[in-house]
Design a protein around this nucleic acid. Structure first.
Lengths: 216, 216
DNA sequence: CCCAGTCTGGACTTGCTGGTCCATTTTTTG
DNA sequence: CAAAAAATGGACCAGCAAGTCCAGACTGGG
């Protein structure tokens, strides 16, 4: 991947990717040209093709990877330790805040649409991101189970999948409408479903409601 | 909008839109040219610009409208009368089936990405679609409330928003991964949440579980 | 200091695609 | 039937953006 022989080379390559990511966020993939990226990053055509021999598609793929990495990073450290209701709430806030700030640009989505299903690379990036994301959500739910805040009977994987879908859809809708209502609704309802599942099965403590609102 | 003076004209226009929709589904927006559409629909360049004076963007917008209309139509008649658990289940099946058949192409999403936030028209189409969709879901939930299957205390609008987000996200993820697990999870969890909400508030019958699986 | 490999600059080519234009045919209408 | 309006065919144009190429400038090791 980043087999740049020289430190300078590696730096330039990184500069290109970061700059390209910026431009793509601002203008959208469809209308961004190599010249836009070139001028933004202060590089020449030959450099672009030096570091990305396969041209634009390869560059876009690199940017996609870059963006995909950011997604989970931006949710840390909260996403990493969802073991209390408070932690879930904090994570929720971070997600909402992150995407509201991002506004109506969906770097990864757009990138994926552009590079398209044709490229196995793009698909792999997104698939991997989703898997990791869902895994961390599921992990958090299991932590709740371990703490007795959620009944062990809960189908963690399915619930995590649903929550992830809700987030994705919320972001999608926000991109279209500029309104984050759906994202919030998805997150809140998802977490609420977790809480309610305790009442539903009725097997566990029955005190999750209070315990959740309170301490770690 | 469709102010074509002649019947023949209207037919041609419709043929163009439908053909374009097909091509766009097959190849994706990014790589589809006017010539592709031209050859598919058996029309000439002048016709394209005769019926869509503003060129490609106007044509894409028309296709977006066309696709948006299909979305809700394809869910009928189920989406229209979600007044029993059985109806909800049938609707769920139709949605899953529809999107699984559609596979990894998301006409509207792609179209929207292409025409982009720049165009107020595109945004309006998507926004309107979402509103209608959510409205029908909310309407269905209220019907459940009226039948005493769901407590009146339920925040219908927020729950509908969350469910819609889940669907959108499920479709998005399916597009990327080719797997409909998330879509199913979102739908099932969403409906389950509706059911569980009865137990949660504990105010109503308490028999929804059985009643749901059963009649009507 | 020199040489090999790396990095950089930027002019140039090339293919394609959206869009224009006008001539011709078909349809409508009075 | 004739004239006007609509519909159609397809050649043509212009611009743009991806990709090529080669010359020249660094850099680091011997």
């Amino acid at each position: 991947m980043s087999d740049a022989p020289t430190a300078k080379g590696r730096a330039t390559r990184a500069r290109i990717v970061e700059g390209a990511a910026q431009v793509l966020r601002e203008q959208g993939v469809a209308v961004t040209t190599l010249d836009d990226i070139r001028s933004r990053t202060g590089t020449s055509k030959s450099q672009l093709f030096h570091y990305f021999p396969d041209g634009k598609s390869e560059l876009l793929l690199a940017v996609a990877r870059f963006e995909a990495d950011r997604v989970l990073e931006d949710q840390q450290p909260y996403l990493g330790c969802l073991d209390s209701w408070q932690a879930w709430r904090q994570w929720r806030d971070v997600v909402v805040e992150r995407y509201e700030r991002q506004g109506d640009s969906c770097p990864l989505g757009a990138l994926f649409l552009q590079v398209g299903r044709s490229s196995p690379g793009a698909r792999a990036i997104v698939t991997e991101l989703m898997r990791q994301w869902q895994r961390q959500l599921a992990h958090g739910m299991r932590a709740l189970q371990a703490n007795g805040l959620v009944p062990a009977a809960l189908d963690v994987d399915r619930t995590a999948a649903a929550l992830l879908a809700g987030i994705q859809g919320g972001v999608t809708i926000m991109m279209s409408t500029g309104d984050s209502t759906h994202l919030r609704a998805a997150l809140d309802t998802g977490i609420e479903h977790l809480r309610a599942s305790g009442a539903e099965s009725g097997a566990t403590t029955g005190a999750e409601g209070k315990a959740g609102a309170g301490p770690t």
